[in-house]
Design a protein around this nucleic acid. Sequence first.
DNA 1: AATATTAATCGTAATATTGCAATATAAAGC
DNA 2: GCTTTATATTGCAATATTACGATTAATATT
Lengths: 109, 109
Amino acid sequence: MGLTKTEIFTEEQNQLSTLLKAMAHPARIAILQRIILSNTCICGDLVGELGLAQATISQHLKELKTAGIIQGTIEGVSVCYCINPKTWKLLEEQLGAFLGSYKGETPCC
Amino acid sequence: MGLTKTEIFTEEQNQLSTLLKAMAHPARIAILQRIILSNTCICGDLVGELGLAQATISQHLKELKTAGIIQGTIEGVSVCYCINPKTWKLLEEQLGAFLGSYKGETPCC
DNA sequence: AATATTAATCGTAATATTGCAATATAAAGC
DNA sequence: GCTTTATATTGCAATATTACGATTAATATT
């Protein structure tokens, strides 16, 4: 097996879990934080700043890009990455609705 | 390899990624939604409602419990699961701070 | 005591992820 | 052209995840 049964779940559940999975790694959280912090888009500075190999960083960036969380445009020799506002908004909405649906009123167990 | 280099990242980055990872599966999102929906804590009803085997559901529940997102107490023969309010709050705070740190003012690329 | 019910655990197969070295690609400068 | 710089891709090894059947442990019910 080892294969998620996506056909069983709703479109929303699959979409949210895909976005969460893309962020569910410390390196990718660190990358996103860096991108957000430097309002001027950074590129391969990450390789120096995080303690990971260039190939590894590139892979993580690709995953974030595939999930639609970031976008990158070629800037001469380097590549400029930044947040995809649309996906970020979607994530905020979906997650907000999900997390907000729990009102911790009645602790049952 | 196949081993995340947690020692490179901050405590917060690791903690948040762990929580996100625990939720980053459609089945676990579905389980959490069920638990939230039925304010009376459900137990093995999940097996009937989701299309997954009992062993699989039990495994997902264990993961959520290990991450501290839910808690379960034995209720005779069955087990009663519910949200861990403390972790849920933490998640809301950490995620809120993270997602909120991006103000989509200046779209750079 | 014998049996049924509920949930956890074990064992296993299929697949995915993480990380890196090595190599490839693409653009800019000489 | 060649060289440098920046990023992507490939191939691989180690480990993790997903899912399930079978079994086990614990409590209920008869």
